[in-house]
Simulated assay, not measured.
Amino acid sequence: MLGLKWSCCHYVYNLKSPSFAALLSMIAALRTYSLDKLQYKRETESGISSLAHFLSKDTIDLFNIIIKPVAYLSMFYFFNNPRSSFQDNYVILMALVYCVTGMAYVLAISFAPSLAQLWAVLVPVVLTLVANKGKDSMIQKYFGKFCYTKWALEAFVIANAEKYSGVWLLTRCKSLESGGYNLHDWKLCLIILIVNGVIARILAFIILVTR
């Protein structure tokens, strides 16, 4: 009974982490492009390179990508005390923040500020619900692999499950089996999150230039 309660607490931790972190990071990253569209138009008309403009803003945001996971974990990690290490959680969150920051660029460039904020709230919430579906769900089967939340949640669960040993192995097998996760896919999850961030940035730059 105690083992089941412990496992449930860590599952709730793993579920909330990608949702909260993605939501806060995406909303904060909207400011990078939401407030300076007129300034960008003036600068491009004067001859500034669009690529240099985009890369400079993205480079400045790298500081936030590195610092935000630390600020988040300094409060959230020690209250929950999960089995996974602080370093593993930091790496996952950094990849997650990099991914959603690129998505925020797309929303900020494509929509007006108020509408972009609405989408920035809806997208993480809806995709988290998709990631929370069981492995046998039709939604998870066809759409789960395209959701960054699925890979972030899997990375958190795997990092936590790797620390189980001895009598806790049954709990580890249950947590992995319920989500259809593979213990050896931790690095794959991080790579997919980073690739999603790169693709989102390429799409954001294309929209910035064309619009």
Rank of each mutant, 00 (worst) to 15 (best):
Ile139Tyr: 02
Ser7Gly: 15
Leu183His: 13
Gly3Val: 09
Gly47Arg: 07
Val12Asp: 00
Tyr13Asp: 07
Trp151Val: 02
Asn132Met: 09
Thr210His: 12
Pro69Ala: 00
Gln140Phe: 12
Val100His: 03
Ser110Gln: 09
Arg172Ile: 08
Gly3Asp: 07
Thr101Ile: 11
Arg201Asn: 11
Ala104Glu: 13
Leu62Thr: 10
Cys99Ser: 13
Phe54Tyr: 07
Asp185Gln: 11
Phe54Ser: 01
Asp136Ser: 14
Ser34Ala: 15
Ile65Thr: 14
Thr44Ser: 06
Cys173Ser: 15
Gly134Val: 15
Ser165Trp: 05
Asn64Arg: 09
Leu208Tyr: 10
Thr101Phe: 11
Ser34Lys: 06
Trp186Pro: 00
Cys99Trp: 00
Phe79Ser: 13
Met1Gln: 07
Tyr40Thr: 13
Ile65Ser: 06
Arg83Tyr: 03
Lys5Tyr: 09
Lys5Gly: 08
Leu203His: 04
Phe205Pro: 01
Thr210Arg: 14
His184Tyr: 09
Trp186Arg: 13
Tyr148Arg: 03
Leu73Trp: 09
Val195Leu: 08
Glu177Tyr: 05
Lys16Gly: 04
Val70Gln: 01
Phe143Ala: 14
Phe156Leu: 11
Gln39Arg: 15
Lys57Gly: 12
Leu127Arg: 01
Leu208Gln: 10
His53Glu: 08
Ser110Phe: 06
Ser85His: 02
Gln87Asp: 06
Leu38Trp: 01
Ser137Leu: 04
Ser50Gly: 08
Ala29Arg: 03
Ser137Ala: 13
Arg172Trp: 09
Trp168Gly: 02
Ala159Arg: 03
Arg172Pro: 04
Ser7Ala: 14
Arg201Gln: 11
Tyr164Met: 11
Thr101Tyr: 08
Trp186Gln: 08
Cys8Asp: 12
Val209Glu: 12
Lys141Ser: 09
Ala204His: 01
Ser49Pro: 00
Ile48Asp: 07
Val198Cys: 09
Phe146Ile: 05
Ala155Glu: 01
Phe76Tyr: 14
